[in-house]
Design a protein around this nucleic acid. Structure first.
Length: 480
RNA sequence: GGUCUCUUAGUAUAACGGUUAGUACAACGGGUUUUCAUCCCGUCAACGCGGGUUCGACUCCCGCAGAGAUCACCA
C-alpha cells in the first residue's frame, strides 16, 4: 500500500500545505505501507531555488520520514518530475499510438479567440470543439493534447462520497507543454501509476478535474487509485483558503517561535479530522493508530493560531511532566536570552523547571527569564505603583524589605522548604498580607511583570544574589 | 455564467431518528498564600432558511439561500 505527498517547490511551505502531507503519512504508517515524497517541479517559471530543501526539512522536523523520494531514492527513481521527461514522453507516445492524443499547433492567440467567442455566445468553452482537423506529427516544441472521450462518469471519493459528472466538464487537456515538460494533469497520473500509488490525497480543488483524470486512467487501462479530497484550511478571516497572501506563516517560522513539532502535527492533524472521541492531545503514534479516512471533515476548517498556541503549551507541559525537564530542556536551544550564555546547563535547567508551566512557545523564554541571568534594571515605579503596594510609603516599603533581608540572611540551608518557612514567619512578624509582602520582594528581585512563585525564584537565584537584589532595591528607595 | 462541493456557538468539532444538543479553544466570572501562567470550578454561546417523510428530525428527501472550488501550455 502506497501513499504520497507531491508538493511543488514554489516557495516556502505553509501550514495549509503541510496538512496534505500529514494524512497520507499517517495512513501509510498505519497500514505498514510506503510513504512517497515526489517533487512536482514541472513549472519552471514558478520554481523557487531552495524550496525542495525546505520541504524536506519541514517533513523531517515533523518526524514524517518518507520511504521513497529525494535523498533516499527508491525503485521508481527519479522523484523529481523535471527529471522524468522521457517517461512522460513514452506514455504520451502510447496515447498517440492509440489515437487518443494529438499534437496541437494552435497558438495562444487563436485559443484565446475561441475562448472569447464562447464567452460572447455564453456557451461553455471546450477546446475539443475546436480540435485541429489535420494535426501535425508530434515533436518537441508542440503541445500534446489528450483526445477526450466525454461521457457521464461516476466515482467514489473517500471523503466526499459518491460523485458524478457529465461530459460537459471533460475536455482535451494539455498533456505535455511546448517546453517538453508535462502538465500536472498528466504527470501525476503517469507517476502514480509508475510508482504504484494506491491513495491519491489532495485538496478539493482537484475535484472538478477528476472526470478528466478518470478519462486518462481509462485510456491507459489503469486501476483507479482511491481518491481522497481534502477540504481546505481557511484563513483566520474571510472565507478564503489559507495562502501565503493571507500571511500564512511558514512552518519554519513557527519552529523559530518555539512551536514544538508534536504540537504542530497534533493541531494540523485535528484540523478537519477527529476520531469521534473527546481527546484533543494526540502523540504521533496515537494519530497513526486512530486515523481514518471517513472521519475526515468534508467542509473547510478555519485556521486558529490561538488554539495552536494553547496546544503547544499543553505539549510543553506534557513533555516536561512525562519525560522530565531534561527532555524539554533539550528542545530549548536557541530560545534563551543572550545573557544566558554565561550560565551552565544545570542552572538553565533549574530556571526552566520553575518557568515551563507558563510558556506558550519556547521563545517566551527570552522575555520571561532575563532576570535570572542579569540584574534587572531598577524601576521604582513598579514597586511604588503596584496595586498592592501603592498604599505604602517608600519608607515603609524600604523598611519591609530590610526586615525581609534580615530574616532571609539568617537562613543557613537555602532551599525551597526553609525559604517557604521564612516567608511564612515574615508574614506573621510583619502582619502584612501575602499580596503586599510577596509582591514587594518579588519585584525587588525581578522588576518583572510576572515571575514564578517567590520561594522557587529565590531558591534558583541563590542566597547571595537574592539578598543583593533586595538590598539594591532598598538603596534605590532610600536615595529616591 | 456553466459545473461541482460544503453548511452545528466567534473558532475546531461530537451526535449517525428520541439527549436539558456533548467537548475543547476564545471571551467573561470565581478559586488555588503576590504577579503572570498552570490547574480547578462556573457563565455566555450553535443545529442557515422553507417544505416534506415520520408518532418523533441536527440526523432522511426536495427546494432556496449563503459560502467555497473549478472552467490555464499553474499545480
Amino acid at each position: 500500500m502506497k501513499t504520497r505527498f507531491a508538493p511543488s517547490p514554489t516557495g516556502y511551505i505553509h501550514i495549509g500545505n503541510v496538512r496534505s502531507a500529514i494524512y497520507p503519512y499517517l495512513l501509510a504508517r498505519q497500514q505498514n505501507g510506503t510513504f512517497i515524497l515526489r517533487i512536482e517541479d514541472t513549472d519552471q517559471a514558478r520554481y523557487v531555488e531552495g524550496a525542495t530543501e525546505l520541504i524536506e526539512e519541514t517533513l523531517e522536523w515533523l518526524g514524517m520520514n518518507w520511504d521513497e523520494g529525494p535523498i533516499v531514492g527508491g525503485p521508481a527513481s527519479p522523484y523529481f518530475q523535471s527529471e522524468r521527461a522521457e517517461i512522460y514522453h513514452a506514455w504520451g507516445q502510447k496515447l498517440i499510438d492509440m489515437g487518443r492524443a494529438y499534437a496541437d499547433p494552435t497558438n495562444a492567440e487563436t485559443i484565446q479567440k475561441y475562448r472569447d467567442e464562447c464567452n460572447a455566445k455564453k456557451i461553455p468553452y471546450l477546446y475539443r470543439n475546436f480540435r485541429p482537423e489535420n494535426p501535425p506529427e508530434w515533436k518537441p516544441g508542440i503541445p500534446l493534447r489528450f483526445k477526450a472521450d466525454p461521457k457521464p462518469r461516476t466515482w467514489h471519493d473517500e471523503v466526499m462520497g459518491d460523485m458524478s459528472a457529465g461530459p460537459e466538464v471533460q475536455d482535451d487537456i494539455v498533456l505535455i507543454k511546448a517546453d517538453g515538460l508535462p502538465t500536472y494533469n498528466f504527470a501525476h497520473i503517469v507517476d502514480d501509476a509508475e510508482m504504484g500509488v494506491d491513495y491519491v490525497m489532495r485538496g478539493v480543488e482537484y475535484l472538478s478535474s477528476t472526470p478528466n483524470y478518470l478519462a486518462l486512467y481509462e485510456a491507459f487501462g489503469l486501476k483507479i487509485p482511491k481518491l481522497v479530497s481534502l477540504p481546505h484550511i481557511l484563513a483566520p478571516t474571510g472565507n478564503k483558503k489559507l495562502g501565503k497572501r493571507d500571511g500564512a506563516k511558514s512552518v519554519t517560522e513557527y519552529r523559530k517561535d518555539g512551536i514544538l513539532a508534536e504540537a504542530m502535527l497534533n493541531y494540523l492533524a485535528c484540523l478537519g479530522w477527529n476520531d469521534g472521541t473527546e481527546q484533543e492531545i494526540y502523540t504521533k503514534d496515537e494519530l497513526i493508530e486512530r486515523f481514518s479516512l471517513p472521519r475526515i471533515q468534508n467542509s473547510g476548517a478555519r485556521y486558529d493560531e490561538t488554539k495552536l498556541f494553547w496546544m503547544n503549551g499543553q505539549w510543553i507541559r506534557k513533555i516536561a511532566d512525562e519525560q522530565g525537564i531534561e527532555a524539554l530542556y533539550a528542545r530549548t536551544d536557541g530560545f534563551w536570552p543572550e545573557n544566558a550564555d554565561a550560565y551552565d546547563d544545570n542552572y538553565k535547567k533549574r530556571v526552566l523547571g520553575i518557568i515551563y508551566d507558563r510558556l506558550k512557545v519556547l521563545a517566551d523564554l527570552r522575555d520571561m527569564t532575563g532576570y535570572f541571568f542579569t540584574d534587572p534594571e531598577i524601576d521604582l515605579k513598579m514597586l511604588t505603583e503596584n496595586k498592592f503596594l501603592k498604599k505604602l510609603s517608600e519608607e515603609e516599603l524600604s523598611e519591609l524589605l530590610q526586615v525581609s533581608v534580615r530574616k532571609l540572611e539568617a537562613i543557613n540551608d537555602w532551599n525551597t522548604d526553609t525559604l517557604q518557612a521564612a516567608l511564612n514567619e515574615l508574614l506573621e512578624e510583619t502582619g502584612k498580607k501575602p499580596a503586599e509582602l510577596f509582591s514587594a520582594i518579588r519585584l525587588a528581585l525581578s522588576f518583572a511583570p510576572f515571575s514564578p512563585a517567590l520561594h522557587l525564584t529565590m531558591e534558583v537565584l541563590g542566597k547571595d544574589t537574592s539578598l543583593a537584589r533586595i538590598n539594591r532595591a532598598v538603596n534605590a528607595l532610600e536615595n529616591d
